[in-house]
Amino acid sequence: MKKKLVLFVGGATLLLLFSITMSLSIGSSMIPITEVWSTLFGGGDEVSRAIILQVRLPRIVLAILVGAALAVAGAGFQGVLRNPLADPYILGVSSGASIGAAFIILFGLQSTLFGKYSIPIVAFITGVLTLFFVIFIAKKSGQMKKETLILAGVIVQAFLGSIISLMVSMSGTVLNEIIFWMMGSLTLKGWEYSQIMAPYLLIGIIIILSQGRALNLFTLGERTALHLGVQVERTKMIVLVTSTLLTASAVSVSGVIGFVGLVVPHLIRLIVGPDYRLILPLSIFGGSIYVLWADTIARMALMPKEIPLGVVTSLLGAPFFAYLLKKGSKGVHL
């Protein structure tokens, strides 16, 4: 298993480095790859340094962090709910974060609460509160069945979605700002957004990776996992809360970006099999690469205009997932 992990991680690392290099090179001002590497190592001319280090690199790093967070969170949800169609938005976290952001934008509080960090911080808080509310609804006699949890998430998400729609209808002059945030974007996001998100991502990944063996046993059923030594309710809570923290941290800085947590872990599963000790770490790389290329397409496809990132991930993810489901799922034990 270790040799297999090293092989796949090595290949994924090379693919990620290639993707970063190409994304740094591609743009309204095309920069040769040799110039890109020269600039990264302290050389390059003044114009190249400004474009690469001040404009493109901060956005690329944030895309990598957001993609990694959403993908590994999706893998966590799929493992604990034993459902390959689960994603980070199934428990209403996305809608919860969106309510916080929409509230701040609607009432013009962007600069009065926490300065430029107002939207990320409030979106994060409301996203996490949403999860605890869903868990509160789903719990009965100290137990939390996956069917009840999913149903509670769907109900809460529908309710919060209607509130968001109400806010949009009331928004008036800030309508476009709210809608653009809900479609997801990394436009004009500097290093400070990566600094906000990085600690949550690091802690979340460490916790999720430690649950790989337990998630493997979950595939056998909760009762079997319990007999094999897994603390089922504790593991569920750890994975659900950590996955929600990762999702909320990503949504708070980028807006709503769909299909990453759904498509990437499923694709990884089709490639490496059902072992979560492989799926979880490889989802980190897969999500990073997926969002990085989606963002590159978003800023290049209709230059000089930019497509919202969430629109690109949905346009790529929906048909791609449908193809995987149709062609690949028959040969995979889900």
Rank of each mutant, 00 (worst) to 15 (best):
K3S: 14
K4C: 08
L5Q: 13
V6L: 15
F8K: 09
V9S: 14
G10F: 04
G10I: 07
G10C: 06
G11F: 13
A12E: 06
L14K: 08
L15S: 10
L17V: 11
S19H: 00
I20K: 00
I26Y: 11
S29T: 14
I31M: 05
E35V: 13
W37M: 12
F41D: 05
G42K: 08
G43S: 04
G43F: 06
G44V: 10
D45I: 00
E46K: 13
E46C: 03
R49I: 09
I51W: 06
Q54L: 12
Q54A: 12
I60N: 02
L62V: 03
I64S: 04
V66Q: 00
A69Q: 07
L70M: 07
A71E: 00
F77G: 05
Q78R: 08
Q78M: 05
L85H: 07
A86E: 06
Y89V: 08
L91K: 10
S94L: 03
S95D: 12
S98D: 08
S98K: 10
S98F: 09
F103D: 09
F107V: 02
Q110A: 12
L113A: 02
G115M: 04
G115Y: 07
G115K: 03
K116S: 15
K116E: 14
K116G: 14
Y117G: 11
P120V: 04
A123C: 10
I125F: 12
I125V: 15
I125Y: 04
V128C: 13
V128S: 11
V128K: 10
T130M: 02
V134S: 09
I135T: 11
A138Y: 10
A138L: 01
A138W: 03
K139V: 15
K139M: 14
G142S: 07
M144P: 12
T148S: 15
G153K: 03
G153M: 02
V154Q: 01
I155A: 15
I155K: 12
Q157F: 12
Q157E: 13
F159C: 13
F159K: 05
G161F: 00
G161N: 08
S165L: 12
M170I: 09
M170W: 13
G172Y: 02
V174Y: 06
I178H: 00
F180Y: 14
M182D: 12
L188N: 15
K189D: 04
G190P: 02
G190F: 10
M197P: 05
I206Q: 00
S210W: 03
L217T: 12
G221W: 04
R223S: 15
T224G: 02
A225M: 08
A225H: 09
L226G: 15
L226K: 15
L226W: 14
V232F: 06
V232Y: 08
E233N: 15
V241E: 06
T247P: 08
A248I: 11
S249M: 11
S252R: 09
V253L: 10
V253E: 05
V256T: 15
I257M: 09
L262M: 10
P265I: 02
H266R: 07
L270H: 05
V272R: 09
R277V: 05
L278T: 01
P281H: 06
P281Y: 07
L282C: 06
L282W: 03
F285T: 05
I289N: 00
I289D: 02
Y290K: 01
A294L: 01
T296V: 01
A298R: 08
R299E: 00
R299Y: 04
I307D: 10
G317Y: 04
A318K: 02
Y323L: 14
S329L: 14
K330Q: 13
G331C: 09
G331R: 06
G331N: 13
V332A: 14
